[in-house]
Design a protein around this nucleic acid. Structure first.
Length: 436
RNA sequence: GUGGUUGUAGCUCAGUUGGUUAGAGCACCAGAUUGUGGAUCUGGGGGUCGCGGGUUCAAAUCCCGUCAGCCACCCCA
């Protein structure tokens, strides 16, 4: 009878994989703390409505949703944003501004597996609530950059594409598109990079053919690759809203430059982030080689807290997924071979010596030294072999002769040097040999 | 959800036109080795050949189905 298999798309972490995961999380967490973000978490299981309210019922096809034993419609969380909006919204008036929060959590989506995408994955989420100005974007993008740089990735390895849904909407308004048409155009922009001119088909079907003049103007903004070009294109449109928005852009880019991350960011109006809830600046991180899917994505979502029952609270956030990110680190050889090795390994002569040895093992462990020893009594040769393979720096030798003389022989497994120390000085001696 | 492709030991892979008890390397365990490690040698465990059905005297091999992995599409909050 075959054992039940791991569910498709779910992951198991053997010690080696777990070491990698822990390493990544450790750097992310440390970086977030350095930037003054506070960690939070929420439930893994949420009411289904938390997700359908924001994204409509069709989202349910992508959810791990079911009816629980109490008849509740529930879903495993596919993302953090609704949860954090609820958390913040519920206590918004009691929280000091700006609210800078982050989390590292697992998410679940009922989707087909692919490279860099499974049915469960971890995300680092960071958000700032309560700051409407581009200063919040500066801080978040700087954090995003550092979360990648912290592993040794450089501006040669990744970059961040920066765009703006507000700018697009103002621009399209100036071109005379109504609201529904503008939304349709955003969909076109999202697809244009991938399928080119065919992207306009969806607009044509809904609103009729677009005149060439306006199409050319859309393509002009789409082609913008820098602040100068952006200003030039926007100046032609001659809209007050657009001019005001440009001031935000200058503030954002200036801030990013001052923060030392300018080299990682490129102006690129081709990014609009799907049909999502974003209301202003949006950004996505990609590897430079371009053979992986997006590493991270985020943007401003000023309406969402209110939508989840909280007060009007401006917000901006981003998420980094662990799978694509790990693929990038592997490709660049930036995952250190992490080995969980003990500091010392006890080599024990026989049952008589074992009592003393275990006492010392305990003593060393109380002193926070990592110590291992063979559970079963075996020959000395085997124990030395095990000591070497464990990666320990020192072997502590408990033979008949040492125990009788009240000493412990310590062998440096690197250079083979041996010293004897009185049993009562063991902790000190081990510390010294380890250099701490 | 659609299409393509791949499934043999923990891992990487052999396995002849269908032919007897399916192999190798690495890894693991044990012995050589009763006080000094990484080596070497010897031995051992581990497979319903993804699963199910069909063709055949005979299937890892051929056919059908199914499941799973990979790749692309859809989607990507």
């Amino acid at each position: 009878m075959a054992l039940p298999q791991t569910l498709p798309g779910f992951r198991e972490f053997y010690p080696e994989a777990m070491a990698v995961r822990s390493h990544i999380f450790r750097v992310w967490r440390q970086t977030a703390h350095v930037f003054g973000f506070q960690e939070y978490d929420g439930p893994v299981l949420e009411p289904l409505e938390l997700y359908t309210r924001k994204s409509g019922d069709e989202i349910e096809a992508q959810l791990f949703s079911f009816t629980d034993k109490g008849g509740r419609e529930v879903s495993l969380r596919p993302e953090m944003t609704p949860t954090v909006c609820r958390l913040v919204g519920a206590k918004a008036n009691a929280l000091k501004r700006p609210i800078k929060w982050f989390s590292i959590a697992e998410f679940y989506r009922y989707e087909r597996m692919q490279k860099g995408r499974g049915r469960c994955f971890f995300q680092f989420n960071a958000d700032i609530f309560g700051e409407a100005g581009p200063e919040a974007e500066v801080e978040l993008i700087a954090l995003l950059v550092q979360c990648l740089r912290g592993f040794g990735l450089t501006a040669e390895d990744f970059y961040i594409r920066l765009s703006d849904r507000n700018l697009w909407l103002h621009y399209l308004e100036a071109l005379g598109f109504d609201e529904a048409q503008a939304r349709s155009v955003l969909g076109v922009i999202d697809k244009y990079e991938k399928i080119g001119d065919a992207a306009f088909t969806s607009f044509t079907e809904a609103h009729g053919a677009m005149d060439e003049t306006r199409k050319a103007k859309i393509l002009a903004l789409l082609a913008v690759k820098g602040i100068d070009a952006l200003e030039a294109v926007v100046a032609q449109a001659g809209s007050e809203k657009l001019t005001a928005r440009l001031a935000d852009w200058r503030a954002l880019l200036g801030g990013l430059e001052a923060m030392g991350v300018g080299a990682f960011v490129s102006v690129d109006l081709g990014v609009v982030r799907g049909l999502s809830y974003y209301t202003g600046f949006v950004f996505e991180a990609f590897d430079r080689k371009g053979d992986l899917r997006a590493l991270a994505g985020g943007g401003r979502y000023n309406d969402l807290v209110a939508k989840y029952g909280g007060p009007d609270l401006p917000a901006v956030g981003f998420a980094i997924g662990d799978m694509t990110f790990q693929l990038l680190l592997e490709a660049r050889g930036l995952l250190p071979k992490i080995m969980q090795a003990p500091d010392a390994y006890a080599v024990i002569g026989g049952p008589a010596e074992r009592t003393l040895a275990l006492g010392h093992v305990n003593e060393l462990r109380q002193a926070a030294l990592r110590v291992d020893y063979p559970l079963k009594q075996t020959a000395f040769g085997k124990q030395f072999k095990a000591a070497g393979e464990s990666g320990a720096k020192l072997a502590l030798i408990y033979g008949e002769s040492e125990v009788a003389r009240g000493v412990v022989k310590i062998r440096d497994l690197g250079d083979g040097k041996e010293t004897e120390v009185p049993a009562h000085q063991l902790v000190l001696a081990v510390r010294e040999l380890l250099g701490r």
